[in-house]
């Protein structure tokens, strides 16, 4: 069976249901790279440009970890996946940057996804890939409708408070695919008295290695983490409407919109996770920090992650932040 490799990094954390359901319905075997570990990150760090941000270095490691294990590597060029929202330059240039790391037998499939240009969204992009793999039109049509259904089901499940893994399993059940064994389980978080809004790019906060399991840690401290993906889209848009000029990064829009909602007092504290070397984070984080300082309602903390982040430092800061929130709650 044809094996399609999906590097488990960057937009994987948003589009995994879409991609995996599409390729599985086509009858190919989907091979995601393992959950990020030290070896993967280190090989990424060694093979990417020094100046790159942490998530892109991590992506390089995932691409390399799939070496000789798959027939096709899926590295889509996601330019614009929503009208009015662009991805960052490094995601735009991703297929060009990974070129030369290694070449699978059937090549790197890098469809361009740009909804601004006619209809060349996911549908067109994936259809081109299917054609190149010699898939019949009818199968492709079914795969696409399955994939679309899966993605919207997944997004609703996330907004309903499920965490990535559980939302994904529910999605698979809904589409009629067998459940997947996954070693890294992040179930539904136990409800706790404190709620903390956790902001950041999905590929950082949902990657348990890069974020050092921050979501589960918070939960173990008696906190319910709420991510931007769990905030309903209408509230995110309302938050963004406060900007003089709308932001042009789609991931940043979600983060800023959710931040505005959180800082209105819907959570007890807000944590912004940033990646070292991330361009959009530097400006988006500055906006959030200023809003928080002006609002004076919700305590705010920013955490920067890089390949040298130590666990002890993170735990100390998290504990101090949570303790402070607990004292505030008592008062």
């Amino acid at each position: 069976m044809l094996k399609v490799g999906l590097p488990r990094a960057l937009l994987y954390y948003q589009y995994y249901p879409y991609w995996s359901v599409f390729f599985e319905t086509l009858g190919t075997k989907v091979v995601p790279s393992p959950v990020t570990n030290e070896d993967i990150l280190m090989s990424g760090v060694q093979n990417a440009v020094d100046d790159c941000c942490l998530p892109v270095k991590c992506y390089f490691g995932h691409v390399l970890s799939l070496q000789d294990q798959v027939d096709v590597l899926f590295v889509p060029r996601v330019v614009c996946d929503r009208i009015g929202g662009l991805q960052c330059p490094k995601i735009l240039g991703l297929p060009d940057m990974v070129q030369g790391l290694w070449e699978p037998t059937l090549g790197i499939q890098a469809p361009t996804v740009d909804v601004r240009r006619g209809h060349a969204g996911w549908e067109q992009g994936l259809r081109a890939v299917g054609r190149r793999l010699g898939i019949s039109g009818a199968t492709m049509h079914r795969a696409q409708s399955n994939a679309e259904f899966a993605q919207s089901f997944y997004q609703r499940a996330l907004e309903g408070g499920l965490v990535t893994h559980e939302a994904y399993q529910a999605t698979r059940r809904a589409v009629g695919l067998p459940a997947m064994v996954c070693r890294n389980k992040q179930g539904r978080f136990a409800a706790a008295e404190l709620k903390i809004g956790v902001l950041g790019h999905p590929y950082l906060i949902y990657d348990p290695y890069l974020s050092q399991d921050l979501l589960a840690r918070l939960n173990s401290f008696g906190v319910t983490p709420i991510t931007a993906e769990m905030v309903p889209g209408a509230l995110v848009s309302a938050g963004n409407a406060r900007l003089v000029k709308p932001l042009f990064w789609s991931l940043g829009q979600r983060i800023l919109g959710a931040a505005a909602h959180f800082l209105d007092g819907h959570v007890d504290g807000v944590i912004h996770l940033t990646s070292f070397g991330c361009g959009p984070d530097s400006l988006v984080g500055e906006m959030i920090a200023r809003w928080a300082r002006r609002g004076k309602r919700v305590p705010f903390m920013s955490l920067s992650f890089d390949e040298h982040s130590g666990e002890a430092g993170l735990v100390t800061r998290l504990e101090a932040f949570v303790d402070m929130l607990k004292r505030r709650a008592v008062r």
Partner: peptide
């Protein structure tokens, strides 16, 4: 400039 996103993409491609 350091951390410039478009130039980092170029920097990653220039060795090739």
């Amino acid at each position: 400039p350091l951390t410039c996103m478009p130039e980092i993409v170029a920097e990653g491609i220039l060795p090739r």
